[in-house]
């Protein structure tokens, strides 16, 4: 019979050791994520150089070939090279979420800093606005916008950028509130420096790591949401295709027993999103440790 106390002590030891292991593993994982994302960005930039075929070259005799030396990931229902399409698709698949994150970060940080700095009715109004937007799921807002303005990359990116504002605004507001109370900001205020200069030259640069961590996490979610909207046919329109649209186009071939045209772009989405969330967690962890 084991004594409960020894058991608990050993679990404590175990947790401490595994926590250290996780910290090391955490660094290795963050590094792996950075490498994976670096490769994806390079692939997107170098698409014209590294893609073995023209991604839109239709060749019906070559339709639905299994993976081979000539076509590493096979061909799709129109005989287009799947690998080349995945490589070219990296461009829109990365630029779309980038647009969402840049837009929501710009507005979200402005709203968050403004509410933290001004407080009072500005804060109350902004908080209500954020609360209402929170209740409106991003994909639904995007579908509403598509229903009004028609499908396209621009509609979905703008709609998701608006829908993601709350995530950026809330994080920014809470860290900016804490930063506002710090002695150096008070000192600058006493010296008579203008609110605009304090916030833009000191406060925002100081909270930037928190914002970066949140924005990186949002990048992954935005990629899932945008790919889903493209999958439904609401995002980027043919002949251009991001990975989401490619998965949708591959469904018919998958039912006929050729899964590569749908599963290859799907797998790349998963790799990208895992990398963004690991990187986001890694940055958040580092920020927590240095600020603690």
């Amino acid at each position: 019979m084991t004594l409960p106390t020894t058991e608990t002590r050993s679990t404590h030891l175990l947790t401490r050791r595994s926590w250290l292991a996780i910290r090391h593993r955490g660094n290795a994982l963050t590094l792996a994520a950075v490498i994976a994302l670096g490769v994806l960005v390079l692939v997107a930039i170098l698409a014209p150089v590294i893609a073995p075929y023209d991604p839109n070259q239709v060749s019906l005799i070559d339709a639905l070939q299994p993976p081979s030396a000539a076509h590493l990931l096979g061909t799709d229902e129109a005989g287009r090279d799947v690998l080349s399409r995945v490589i070219w698709g990296a461009r829109i698949s990365l630029l779309g979420p980038l647009g969402v994150v840049l837009g929501s970060t710009l507005i979200g940080v402005t709203v968050g800093v403004l509410s933290a700095w001004r407080g009072g009715w500005v804060d109350a109004t902004a908080s209500r606005f954020v609360e209402i937007l929170f209740a409106f799921p991003g994909v639904l807002l995007a579908i509403l916008i598509v229903a009004v303005f028609g499908p396209g990359l621009a509609s979905t990116v703008v709609a998701l950028a608006v829908a993601y504002i709350p995530y950026m605004a809330r994080t920014t507001r809470s860290v900016a509130l804490a930063e506002r109370q710090t002695p150096y900001i008070r000192a600058l205020e006493l010296q008579g420096m203008s609110a605009w200069r304090i916030t833009s030259l000191h406060l925002v640069p100081n909270i930037a790591p928190f914002v970066l961590a949140q924005a990186t996490l949002c990048f992954g979610y935005a990629m899932i949401d945008l790919a889903g909207l493209s999958f439904l046919g609401f995002g980027v329109q043919p002949p251009e295709a991001d990975w989401g649209a490619m998965v949708a186009a591959g469904q018919a071939a998958l039912i006929q027993g050729s899964p590569a045209p749908a599963l290859a772009p799907g797998a790349v989405i998963v790799i990208a999103v895992v990398s963004f969330s690991l990187l986001g967690e890694g940055i958040a962890e580092r920020v927590r440790r240095t600020s603690a």
Binding site: G220, I224, G228, F231, G244, G250, L263, A267, V270, V273
Partner: peptide, 14 residues
């Protein structure tokens, strides 16, 4: 957590 529902759907269907 990183796999979109439609990718899961495709893998399951296949």
């Amino acid at each position: 957590m990183a796999t979109p529902s439609f990718v899961v759907a495709m893998a399951l269907t296949s």
